[in-house]
């Protein structure tokens, strides 16, 4: 079967910008057909990882392959099968939206008219506007069309939803789910935890250039931490408690508990804990 190789496989990737850290010893695997979220605070190395995969920047340590092809030796073959959307949606300012979309298809040597017009319709792209007349969100839509019109086997999105209104975000994910049903894998970096939780099956968390964990989204968000809100000895307390609840309750002995609620922590609270760990 040709679909055996993982969509993305990174082994011990290290990329430095001169003395500065980019990413350190990063290993990651994205299976075919998966929707994979890549999370991390600003400057963590998400874009660096993605640019290394696409051959925009060179790395000297580690290996990476996409759809079973080595990213260094088969860059062109890889790019044929990939739809990439950069975090900055910038194009040639004097060109019209339609010309940009056609230019991308022409370079690929493909006729993508049908798919492109369907995408433009659904995203509401005005083909006759010049790029320098468009807002960030509208340029992002063009970027989406350019990434999707050739029906790639793998999508790589760098912060795709920043700048899109909620309606467009929903439409964007609807499109991803449709392509995903047809077998395409998707790798997206994001700061928005709720969209990772809603749409991704697996996720990885990166901080300061290093991978902290990678797992199913379900496991990552499952935690024994609880948010506790109580009034103890007349004082209001509100905190996240992680660990043995018996110990927590034992600590209450001899105190007056007026009121207590114990609930699941918010999604961001779980992730903040991943982000901040080790920073102390």
């Amino acid at each position: 079967m040709e679909n055996k190789e993982p969509a993305i496989e990174i082994k011990n990737l290290t990329k430095k910008y001169g003395k500065h850290r980019g990413v350190i010893n990063l290993s990651l695997k994205v299976e075919r057909g998966d929707i994979f979220g890549f999370l991390g605070p600003n400057g963590a190395g998400k874009s660096t990882t993605i640019r290394s995969l696409l051959g925009l920047i060179a790395f000297w340590e580690g290996r990476a392959s996409i759809l079973g092809m080595d990213v260094k030796s088969r860059q062109k073959d890889i790019l044929k099968e990939v739809g990439y959307m950069p975090s900055e949606a910038m194009f040639y300012p004097s060109m019209k939206a339609g010309d940009i979309i056609r230019f991308a298809a022409d370079i690929r040597g493909l006729d993508c008219k049908k798919e492109a017009s369907m995408l433009c319709e659904r995203l509401g792209v005005d083909l006759h506007k010049r790029i320098d007349e468009l807002s960030l969100g509208n340029r992002k839509k063009i970027s989406i069309v350019c990434a999707m019109q050739h029906k790639p086997k793998l999508f790589i999105f760098d912060e795709p939803t920043s700048g899109l209104d909620p309606l467009m975000q929903a439409e964007f994910f609807k499109l991803i789910l449709e392509y995903n049903k047809q077998g395409a894998a998707c790798f997206l970096s994001s700061h928005v935890l709720s969209e990772i939780k809603t749409y991704c099956r697996h996720a990885a968390i990166i901080r300061e250039g290093q991978l902290i964990c990678t797992d199913t989204v379900e496991n990552l968000t499952k935690t024994n931490a609880k948010r506790i809100h109580m009034i103890k000895d007349g004082k209001e307390e509100n905190f996240v408690y992680k660990g043995d609840l018996d110990k927590l309750f034992a600590g209450f002995f001899g105190h007056h508990i007026e009121d207590i609620t114990i609930e699941e922590p918010q999604l961001d609270e779980i992730f903040m804990h991943y982000y901040e760990e080790g920073q102390k």
Binding site: G55, M90, F91, A104, I107, R108, S143
Partner: peptide, 13 residues
């Protein structure tokens, strides 16, 4: 002009 990410991620050597 920040167009390099667009141009160089198209399948062209």
């Amino acid at each position: 002009g920040h167009t390099s990410e667009f141009l160089y991620t198209l399948p062209i050597r």
